[in-house]
Design a protein around this nucleic acid. Structure first.
Lengths: 135, 135
DNA sequence: TTGAACTGTAATATTTTTTGATACAGAATG
DNA sequence: CATTCTGTATCAAAAAATATTACAGTTCAA
């Protein structure tokens, strides 16, 4: 997770929450985050797939929220961008060693439990609550 | 955290726990993890600094635990390798935008809380308990 | 007292991941 | 039918992670 995708996704969703009813262009969003518009559109792909946002093509098109922000919890946003284990990559250890042979199994359960705790913490806040901090 | 440092550190410490009293060489450890010995020695630097391991130079030298494995909790190991926010990097957003101006502050507190939950989960297990799973 | 087996550390190369940039087809609008 | 968008692909650049090599210094033991 050494990438900014969670921050970007959340930034986008906060902008949309703060501008409900309007269509925001990827160019505008990119200007707020200070990244490239193509990156924004890429991030939007995922958010769209997960049903958080909807978009309209063509002139005067743009993006808007597809759900009420009180029905989106931050852990869902995290899950939508999650790709790899949060505690990092594992190795391909020596199968002829007692520890090497088993470590990845034990790391898996450890990582699962730890990440579950993180997700639960994120689950305590809705997008609306998070967005309301901005004033 | 898209790196394998936590897995490597834990692997090393489990090996040392399973071989208390002995001195393990970085070459031997590297063979179990299946990485380069210089990488192991680099990982050991940190573990040594944090007081988890001690080493002996020269012929017949090697590394051993510096504490009882029941006195090391997994969250301490995590903290010792931790460098960046676990939920990923942030952006440098537009300060002229209401959301852009404040997002990093709010992300900071969110990240802190989420990571705290993860650390607490890791804190529930000692190195000894983890190592005892290997048999 | 010398060679072998280690650690400690630095320097450098390679690979992988992340980010950025550009381009363009296709949709909607007026 | 020109304009302004999204959607998507491709390529370039930068940054991060990992691997490799080298060697000085320490310790041991013959």
């Amino acid at each position: 997770m050494n990438n900014g995708r969670f921050a970007i996704a959340l930034h986008i969703l906060v902008l949309l929450t703060k501008n409900q009813g309007e269509l925001l262009s990827s160019e505008y969003i990119a200007g707020s985050i200070n990244i490239n518009a193509a990156m924004v559109r890429k991030a939007l792909q995922g958010l769209k797939q997960k049903g958080f946002v909807q978009s309209k093509e063509g002139k005067h098109g743009g993006v808007s929220l597809a759900k009420n922000p009180q029905d989106i919890i931050l852990s869902q946003i995290y899950s939508s961008i999650r790709e790899t284990a949060i505690l990092g990559s594992k190795q391909q250890p020596n199968p002829n060693c007692l520890v090497g042979k088993q470590i990845n199994t034990h790391l898996d359960t450890l990582y699962r439990d730890a990440e579950k705790a993180l997700v639960e913490a994120l689950g305590k806040q809705t997008l609306l609550e998070f967005a309301q901090k901005f004033k």
